Structures are given as C-alpha cells and as structure tokens.
Simulated scan of single mutants.
Amino acid sequence: MTPFHTSSLRVVLLGAGRVASQLGPALVQAGHQVVHIWSRTTASAEALAALLPGAQVLPSLDMASLPVADVYLLAVPDAAIPVLLAQAHFPANALVAHTSGTVPLSVFSGCPEVRGGVFYPLQTFSQGRDVDWQTVPLCIEATGPAAEELLLALGATLSRSVQRVGTPQRQSIHIAAVFACNFTNHLLGISHALLQQQALPLALLGPLLQETVEKALAYPPFTVQTGPAARHDTPTLDRHRAALAGHTQWLEIYNLLTDSIQRQGTGLPANNQGPVKL
C-alpha cells in the first residue's frame, strides 16, 4: 500500500447508475467534492446531484472542454466507455479512470491527451442498499506512476483494501465474481421460487448459506463440497430430477452443476474426514 496521502479532490462523475449513486456519496463522505455529474438520463443525474452538496449537472458532453477537475470517474456500462471517451473532450493531461472490472486499460490508447486509469470496486451495488466502502476491495491500475499513486491515495480515503491490479488479473477477478455473486444469486432465486411453491421463506436457508460461505472462505471450496452430487447419491439425484421435471430450465442447470461437481473430484475436504451429508 502506498504511503501517499491526498487532500480533498475535485471529482467529475460521469454516470448516475448503481455504481455512481453509491460512489458519489462515499466520495463526499470521505471529504472530496463531486463538482459535476453527467448521465445519459438527465433526471438520473439531477437526482444524484441533489444528494451531493455543490454538485452540478452537466447537460451534455458536447462542449469544447469538460470542467477542470482532479479526477474524472467513468461509472457507466462497459460498452459505453469507449463511446464516452470518443465523445467527451477532457482537459489536457486529465486523469480519467473507469470503474469496470473487464474493460482493459488499453481502452485509453486512443486518448493520448489524458492519463488513463482503472478504479474498480469489487462489490455488488443495488438501489436502496448502502455498502460499507471501508470493506470494498478497490483494484487500481493506471497508465503512469503519478496517476496510479493518485488513484491509490483516492481509494485509501474510501477503503481499507486498495491494491494495484493489472488488467489480466482484474478480468479474472471479475469472472470469479460473476460465479460467486451473480450466478449464486440466480441460484438463490431458483431456491426462493421452489420454497415459495411450498409457502416456505428463503430465510429458512439462512444458517445453511452462512455456513456455506464461511466454510468456502476457510477452505478451498472444492475440498469441502457436500451434497448428493458429491457423494454420487443416485436415488436422491433421481428424486430431485423428478421434482424438477416441470421446470425444464432449472432441471438443465441442476444436471449441469451435478455433472460439474462429479467431474471435479471426490469432494473430500482438506482434513480428509469426508463430506458432511445434507
């Protein structure tokens, strides 16, 4: 972690979606100034600006030069990043960083007039749910050491976990995050729907989910795999498949995951005590 510290920075936030709506207030709380906000939807920019003292809405990017700031953060969908970079006119030598987990640093190669960077928060963001930014890992990358130091220092005002992460590693992190977060949430959605069919709450699975996550963080997850697929419990697998017969898409997912678990290995945990049955 860099020892470099920064005072209050002037930030222009381009985007007003789920990431920006959480990042903007976090920046202000950390002592920075979000001086301007732009969004493709003006109403979204106005709603976010209303929460940030002194923030003004940029009605358009079609101007000779954007207002001067210390950092320009691009919190927009991945596909919009190259479009925005081509459209916006940043001041010479501006520090411009996107918040994407997958877009490479090389996206700035066509913008030699700016210093490009990445300011990627490894977290899921939803409207109406605040996150503890002190716990959010921030992955930093930049085209030059000075820009990188400034982004590291900015990150350190928000989070206790800030580190340099190159594009290949960041992209791998993002894929892993999709499996851990997005796919897991979809599976929980299926679990919720199955329980609702029996008038049961998803909260019933709460202790199981907590133990699953804690165990996966304590041991290599493949080594603590449990369940009928891991123990090749064919009668149970067949009963599950029969119960899912009316949900062909869910049955396909069930079969794919069962096959993946069985191909991965025996499911023996690191202590070799054998998997706990569920």
Rank of each mutant, 00 (worst) to 15 (best):
M1P: 12
A16V: 11
R18N: 15
A20Y: 05
S21L: 06
Q29V: 13
Q29H: 15
A30R: 02
A30T: 00
W38N: 12
R40D: 12
T42L: 14
A45V: 08
A45T: 06
L48S: 03
A50R: 05
L51H: 15
A55L: 04
L58I: 13
L66V: 15
V68R: 14
Y72R: 11
L74N: 06
A75C: 14
D78E: 09
A79L: 01
A79V: 07
P82W: 01
F90S: 06
V96Q: 09
A97Q: 06
T99W: 11
F108S: 03
S109C: 11
R115L: 06
Q123F: 12
Q127C: 09
D130G: 12
V131Y: 06
W133P: 08
P137K: 04
L138P: 05
A142C: 06
A146C: 14
A146P: 09
A146T: 14
G155R: 15
L158R: 10
Q163R: 12
R164K: 15
A180S: 11
C181K: 08
L188H: 12
G189W: 00
I190A: 09
L194W: 01
Q198I: 08
L200P: 05
L202C: 02
L202P: 00
L204E: 03
G206E: 15
L208R: 09
T212D: 06
A216Y: 10
P220L: 05
P220V: 05
F222N: 11
F222Y: 14
T223Y: 12
V224Q: 07
R231L: 00
R231N: 02
D233Q: 00
P235D: 03
L237T: 00
L237D: 01
A242P: 00
A242H: 12
L244P: 00
A245N: 09
G246A: 05
T248C: 02
Q249Y: 10
E252P: 11
E252R: 08
D259I: 04
Q262D: 00
R263T: 12
G265I: 03
G267A: 01
P269T: 00
N272A: 15
L278W: 15
